[in-house]
Computed example of a mutant assay.
Amino acid sequence: MRCVVLPGVYPPQEDTLLLAAALRRERLPPAARVLDVGTGSGALAVAAARHGAAEVTAVDVCGRAVLTARLNGLLAGCRIRTVRGDLLCPVAGERFDLVVANPPYVPTPPAPRPSRGIARTSDGGEDGRTVLDRLCAEVPAALRPSGVLLLVHSALCGVRPTLALLAAAGLRAEVADRALVPLGPETRSRAGWLLRRGLLAPGQEKEELVVIRAERV
């Protein structure tokens, strides 16, 4: 798709493509409602609309991301509702058939969290799970019966904790996809710190991305 990305907005990357492929494999029910949490460029929201979703909502805490998603929806000829806010707060009380999320997940040295800019889009906190754990806790209540969560993140921040949290919330969770990709620029910039923590091996040039599929049962 033709994609506009404003400064400070997370651009489509390998994780976006991996999640989009998983999204396209989902069978959406009639009149399906889809939520894209942390939409960034809106690429996944557009993919959901093109896949046949009747209603797509894209949420991001960044105003520029909301504008970018709106622009890309218009360019693609897709009707997308864009809302600014923190994770699921703007859609509290609503229910969806599919939720997709590509949150910040890169483990990050302790420091004041950036309030804006591209650095914020990858800042997952010291263990990479600051936003991940919130999503695992908040998304189950936003799913309709048989609703599905598709969530992408790096194995650097742990796969088992994600599966365990989603299972504890009553979802049937599994790894749907895995892919080895070159380390991104933000991960490379933190390589020394990640190496000292034992999260990267000496000379490691790639990381594993996983897509978690969790279904409400």
Rank of each mutant, 00 (worst) to 15 (best):
M1T: 09
M1R: 14
M1S: 15
C3D: 09
V4M: 11
G8L: 01
G8P: 01
Y10L: 13
D15Q: 12
T16M: 15
L19K: 02
L23G: 11
L23M: 11
R24M: 14
R24H: 08
R25M: 09
R25K: 14
E26Y: 05
R27M: 13
R27I: 10
L28S: 14
A31F: 10
A31M: 09
A31C: 14
A32F: 08
R33S: 13
V34R: 04
L35Q: 07
L35N: 02
G38S: 10
G40I: 00
S41Q: 10
S41T: 05
A43T: 12
A48T: 07
A49V: 04
R50Y: 02
G52Y: 11
A53V: 12
V56W: 06
A58N: 07
V59D: 03
R64N: 14
R64E: 14
R70T: 10
G73D: 03
L75N: 09
A76N: 13
G77Q: 04
G77R: 02
C78D: 03
I80E: 09
T82F: 04
V83G: 06
D86Y: 09
C89H: 15
E94V: 01
D97T: 06
V99H: 03
V99K: 01
V100A: 08
V100W: 06
V100N: 10
A101L: 10
P103G: 08
P112Y: 11
R116V: 00
G117L: 04
I118V: 15
R120Q: 07
T121C: 14
T121W: 00
T121H: 01
S122D: 02
D123S: 03
G124T: 07
E126S: 13
D127R: 15
D127K: 03
G128Y: 00
G128T: 02
R129A: 12
V131E: 02
V131G: 01
L132Y: 01
C136Y: 12
C136G: 08
E138N: 06
E138P: 00
P140I: 05
A142I: 01
L143M: 12
R144T: 10
P145R: 15
S146G: 09
G147W: 07
G147I: 07
L150H: 06
V152F: 10
V152T: 11
S154Q: 07
L156D: 03
V159Y: 04
A164F: 03
A164I: 03
L165H: 13
L166S: 05
A167K: 13
A168D: 11
L171K: 04
A176E: 14
A176F: 13
D177M: 15
R178M: 09
P182T: 14
G184T: 06
P185S: 14
R188M: 05
R190Q: 14
R190Y: 15
L200K: 06
L200H: 05
L200V: 13
K206G: 08
E207R: 00
E207V: 07
E208N: 09
E208I: 11
L209C: 12
L209I: 05
R213F: 06
R216S: 12
R216N: 10
